[in-house]
Amino acid sequence: MHTVGLPRTCLGCTNVLFFILGSAGLVICVWCAVNTDFFRDVNYNITRANIVYDIAYFVNLKIWFTPLKSIFIPIAVIVIMTSCCGIMSAGCQFKCAAKSYIFLVTLLSIAFGWFFFVSIIYNIYTNSPKINYIMVDSLKNNYGKEDDMFTHIWNFLMVNFECCGVHDFKDFSYTNWHKDNLEKFYPIQCCILSNKTAMTPMFINCTLTAQKIEPYIHTEGCLQAVRKAVIANKTKLIMYFVLLTIAFALIILFAYCILRGQPLLGSMAVNAPILPFRKIKIEGPKPHPQQSETSLENMIFADEAPKRIVKVVSASNPFQTFQYRPMDYGDRHIPQIAPYGMPVPPMHHHNLRHVK
């Protein structure tokens, strides 16, 4: 049987990884926000990798009027805060950090699930008018701008899903892109390509003609093409959703184990009396607490009751005292001490012990 060390190890390693990723993303976004050219030159001279240019270009893209780096910076900060809470709860077992970690992970998971699975996948699957309006508006107002994220999303959809426009190629007639390219009816991404990497169309003048277009361009709209792909892969999407839910549940259980200081199965069985594997702890009588041996007054004897000792002082001779234990014979044998100057009432002398 494992101990609470297993949840601590798994949670600690996971959050260290997310902390590294969040820190790297934050550094890249802040660096590009300050000076993109300096970021590009320094990192390319060190790594000699073309991905440096792609990263610098990507974080500077815009969604409407907001650069992606302005969106990624607060997201990276939240990821770093969440991972720090997870590391402190796993390493130092801080309960406040574990509670904060559970709250932040739940909040991020709900936000991601709602954005990806509900706002995008579910609306496409149900052919919602809302997703249709968003696609038409982004194609009309944002497509064609080099630094706009929607341009790259549309190009990716048209090339990989082999589609054109929202419903067909005629959607480009009302776009800002067509106003800047009056000689073209649609972009080259709508053409059937012989080489997708080099963007080489099968017919060179594909974008310049609108007649007899079936052999040269994709006639299906992207909304319908993406919807067919979602319907065809709905089993995989459901499996991904289930796996992400299980991963979220495990993370929350690990944090809950640290919060309670119990192993994984022990924490799961605390509030589940119907589980067959739960062990019921039967508590016996609690032993007497260990008392200090330095004082007789703090000692408790299990075999006999505490003794009460009464000291009796003779009224006629104040220097003569007696010790009396009434527990042996009951409280009725407790002697009555007379007021000062009066004789002591008679008592049973066999119950008195003379003290010198």
Rank of each mutant, 00 (worst) to 15 (best):
A249T: 08
E220I: 15
S292C: 06
F254E: 03
G266M: 05
P273G: 02
K236V: 12
I246V: 15
V226C: 04
Q291T: 15
S292E: 07
M299Q: 12
I274G: 03
S267E: 03
K286H: 04
A247Q: 02
Q211I: 08
C190T: 07
F203A: 09
K234T: 06
R227K: 14
H288G: 09
K228N: 13
C190G: 08
I300G: 00
K212T: 00
Y216R: 05
G261P: 13
C257A: 13
H178Y: 08
A225T: 09
A210V: 05
V242W: 01
A302V: 06
P187R: 02
I251A: 11
F185L: 02
T197A: 09
K212E: 12
I204E: 07
P285S: 09
E183M: 07
V230I: 15
L237E: 01
F277I: 14
Q290A: 10
C222R: 05
F254S: 13
C190Y: 06
S194C: 01
T175I: 00
G284C: 07
A198G: 06
K196F: 07
V242Y: 03
H178A: 08
P289H: 07
F301L: 14
L250D: 01
E283T: 13
I300R: 10
K234P: 01
A272I: 06
P276E: 10
H218Y: 13
L208Y: 15
T245H: 03
L237D: 02
P276Q: 10
K179V: 03
V242I: 15
Q211P: 02
D303I: 04
Q211N: 12
P289T: 12
F277L: 15
A198F: 10
L264I: 13
Y256G: 05
A198H: 07
L259M: 10
Y216S: 04
G221W: 09
V270C: 08
A255T: 00
S194F: 02
Q290L: 09
F203T: 14
K179A: 08
C222K: 04
I282D: 04
C222D: 02
L259D: 05
T294F: 12
C257R: 09
C257E: 05
A247Y: 03
I274V: 05
N181K: 08
Q262S: 14
E283N: 12
H288A: 12
M199S: 09
A198P: 00
L244M: 15
R278V: 00
A247V: 11
E214S: 14
L193R: 00
L208V: 09
I213M: 13
P187L: 04
C191L: 02
E214P: 00
N271V: 06
K234I: 14
Q189G: 01
V242R: 02
T219I: 10
K286N: 06
I274T: 12
M239K: 03
E297K: 10
K234A: 08
F185D: 14
Q189I: 03
Q291M: 12
T175P: 00
T209L: 02
A255W: 02
M268V: 08
I188E: 03
